[in-house]
Design a protein around this nucleic acid. Sequence first.
RNA 1: GGAGGGAUGGCCGAGUGGCUUAAGGCGGCGGUCUUGAAAACCGUUGAACGAAAGUUCCGUGGGUUCAAAUCCUACUCCCUCCGCCA
Length: 432
Amino acid sequence: MLDSKYLRENIDFVVERLSLRGEGIDTAGFVELDKKRRGVLQRVEVLKHERNVVSNEIATIKKDKEKKGQGDAAELIQKMKGVSNEIKELDDELNYIDEDLKKILSLIPNIPHESVPAGTSEEDNVEVRKWGTPPQFDFEPLDHADIGEKLGIIDFAGGVKLAGSRFSMLSGHAAYLERALISFMLDIHTREHGYTEMLPPFMVNSKTMTGTGQLPKFADDLFKIEDTDYWLIPTAEVPLTNIFRDEIVEEEDLPIYMTAYTPCFRKEAGSYGKDTRGLIRQHQFSKVELVKFTKPENSYDELEKLLLNAEEILKRLNIHYRVVNLSTGDIGFAAAKTYDIEVWLPGQNTFREISSCSNCEDFQARRANIRFREKGKKGTSLVHTLNGSGLAVGRTLIAIFENYQKSDGTIEVPEALRPYMNGLKQIIGGCR
RNA sequence: GGAGGGAUGGCCGAGUGGCUUAAGGCGGCGGUCUUGAAAACCGUUGAACGAAAGUUCCGUGGGUUCAAAUCCUACUCCCUCCGCCA
């Protein structure tokens, strides 16, 4: 959510910046309502002041009457009845205005940072760097779906039978590999990068979904449990960021680093027919997430560090990747700036997103009311929130399948993962 | 699922219609004393909006009243006991 005061004072600038996202905003509606709100607020505050003053007078008169047996508050009380009714009407009006204003504000996306390249789509994303080299094969590399099915360790039909399209099932060494990847990633982030491991709820309420920006605008992308206020999380960013919702943290506790493995659930509405093959786009996938709470002045440095933390996983696995700076047309709703890490998939001869690292600045903090107290400064300030995948586990598994495949159809286990798989060097299929 | 109890500032906790909308304590900050620290003592210290005056905030939403932390009501969450259960 944007600051309404900031929006009021910089409305032309905001409109211009948001137009780079391809987003129009309801400026006329905002300006009119905002003005109306302040008018009503002023009137009702004057009346409330009067009510407070006269109420005290009434109290004094009644007390005198008890003591001295004289004085009569009847006239004042009568007068205050009118004032009271007026206050009620104005308060009601104010509530409606506030609701409408909130509705407008909650649908406006974050303002892109100045370092974000202008553009309308992913075509305009800018490559920041490449790491490693693509593997060379003396045979035609397969894609992960073929590799997995040939080895009998990815069961696409089974997922469809049990749940439906965009579900699948891993078995044997594929399931083992996924579990190993989760431990591997969490260990690096907790032991080497200073993150605290969390295991949050996989379902959250509407308020939590609103705090990070999924609601109200993106309800169609989410799974909701019928007859409850429970939503399945689309990313651990949601529960982790909301841990400090409506709280004031101490300055010396910042920055706060948290990491969590969770499954993620996404409807993938609007992607019909896209990425239907393989594990690329599923309704349920595993992800290790990184979340940071920082002081505003440090958040862009922290974003660079977070990005490196995510990259480190691919470096240890020795898999070729590149980093791109997303353009204004491609960054998410809550983000001011986003880097994507794209991993090389030889089976598809292309780079695919495996991590998305964003600085949301104070956009989520304002929605979720996450503040900190600064020494020697009056009041509180909003923290900055950051999040990134470290990494998407299913897509990492895909990358290993495709980059480490052998001509005989087996998969070499990357050296860094072997300690997590009881020394296993090669995935040859079968159930154990 | 059944019965009962509860929700007050960062934390604990008093307050049951009007006496500035929150006593007191802890914690934090500043000071006195001290070589330094601790202890003791003194002072200070909630949040939001607003240029300010001022207004609002005692779990959340309704209601009663001239006036609500306080009375009524619905809901949410927490605790205890019983039942069920991985």
